[in-house]
Design a protein around this nucleic acid. Structure first.
Lengths: 290, 290
DNA sequence: AACTGTATTGCATATTATGCAACACTACAA
DNA sequence: TTGTAGTGTTGCATAATATGCAATACAGTT
């Protein structure tokens, strides 16, 4: 039986009037009639004696009435308890988030967390993924949401969220770089737009080394994936970037994914905090809501 | 939420395995997954933390588990209580029932009573309504279902069931009686088929006295309404009889109701027992189930 | 890298819930 | 006696929901 059905029964037991109780519950009398019949079938006894004139609670109905009131009361207590446990946390959470993750993964995380803990304030800093661990280590923030570096110091706790695929992108505009990639070419001849540092840089270095085509032709070094996408769109070169950054870029129509360039391991996106911090109530609650 | 859903959740909380719990409940894992999701939506919290490898009860889930167990336990207690109250009565009920009431009113009464008290045996005697009170008084039966007499001794308890309309009937066949009733006539000239005794006899006497047309022309006196209907069908005379007897007679097409014959008070059909008997459990239960 | 086992989800279909309109019935007023 | 009003029930068409198949995503194991 549904709690809704129990509520209808309880109200009907008080009013002893199908029409009025149906109206109270915004259903038709025929619906209420059937709800009561279904309850009677589940209970296995008539709950009410009724004809077209009178409605009276049967003996079984009186017992069921007590049962129904109990369920509804206990349900309310459960709700109170759950809401209280979630609403009681207060304070501030300082979060550092890479721009990449800010696009795709942070919004639902924050939404869920705030739903469960509406009294917790969130201070959000976004920036380069490369700075994430430093910010955590200096305790400038409580935790960071960013890509996991190759080697993660043991002082950190890392909770996996998702894998972020990376791609090589090139310009779609007609330019020298676009002409080059349409022919047989050596990667050492292609101008490369490179991130200053960070996991994307490491990915590029690892990827390029596997090409074994000599020294990379680094055209420029940029800070941030978004800047990288813009440079590529302008025809300055090619670069490695998370697909989600491209999808959310205003210039995504001016870049194209290059195929058959060899595998690039995706980013391991997650939540990262200091080991010593993870038992703090706010941080613990956040991890629990992931 | 359904009790079925609560049972699934409780079992899942113990096994922490969707596949096994689904099998236990004869549903598919996808169904169980959705049942749990619906519960979580109703509760407003995640009840389990799970991925494709591990299933763990959340804090909210632990509280909900207790709530669910409580509901299921209380439901079982309710069922036990309802079943016990109804199944516990045993013994024999001796019932005398007039043939008239046996047609129309006894079957649903017995059906309901047996449903509520399946372990009670019923010994049924049918016969003339006139004998009903005598049988009760001699304690040959526990109670009788029959028409209430004009004067009911104070030693009896009478519970009203229904009113039984009476009618004057005449033959439909072409005969002297049928010709008589189609003309202006004096009732003293019409042959009367009369019950030997009993409430129908009293009704006739009262009815005839109001006609104030002298002495009744009693053709025959019969024992039982059914016999009376047969005699009338044969053209022997007219008589007063409950309509329900006519409706259930094999010769009902050979008799007709006479209109405009003056009012005949209907029988007051009911259950009648000795005052001293009415607190006996079996008799009390029967009265309660009316 | 391939395989296995797990929980989830898109989608088509089965099942159930709902409300309209009609029905059956009773009490009351004319 | 007849007509009316009000009540709860039910047949039936439709709306809404539940279910399971098949595919998916994913992690641990070999």
């Amino acid at each position: 039986m549904e709690l809704k059905s129990l509520r209808m029964f309880v109200d009907l037991s008080k009013s002893l009037h199908f029409g009025k109780t149906a109206e109270l519950h915004h259903v038709s009398p025929s619906t209420l009639s059937r709800v009561i019949q279904r309850l009677e079938h589940e209970v296995g006894s008539a709950l009410l004696h009724r004809d077209n004139r009178t409605v009276v609670l049967s003996e079984a109905g009186k017992q069921f009435y007590q049962f129904a009131e109990q369920q509804l009361e206990q349900w309310q207590l459960l709700q109170l308890s759950l809401n209280q446990k979630q609403a009681e946390l207060q304070g501030k959470l300082h979060i550092y988030c890479s721009v990449t993750a800010a696009y795709s993964h942070l919004p639902p995380l924050l939404e869920r967390f705030r739903q469960q803990h509406p009294l917790v304030e969130i201070m959000l800093t976004t920036g380069d993924a490369a700075d994430a661990l430093e910010q955590v280590e200096k305790q400038a923030v409580d935790f960071a949401i960013a890509a996991k570096p190759e080697q993660l110091s043991r002082i950190f706790t890392f909770e996996h969220l998702a894998k972020i695929p990376l791609s090589v992108i090139a310009p779609t505009m007609v330019c020298r770089v676009q002409q080059q990639i349409q022919q047989d070419f050596s990667w050492s001849e292609i101008p490369i737009i490179l991130p200053e540092h960070g996991p994307a840089r490491k990915r590029f270095e690892y990827w390029y080394r596997k090409k074994q085509q000599g020294k990379a032709n680094i055209y420029a070094t940029v800070s941030g994936h978004e800047a990288l996408v813009s440079m590529v769109a302008l025809g300055c070169g090619v670069g490695i970037v998370p697909q989600v950054v491209v999808e959310n870029s205003p210039v995504k129509d001016r870049v194209q994914y290059l195929a058959d360039v060899g595998e690039i391991a995706p980013f391991d996106l997650g939540v990262c905090c200091l080991n010593q911090s993870k038992e703090q109530p706010l941080i613990k609650a956040f991890f629990a809501s992931i």
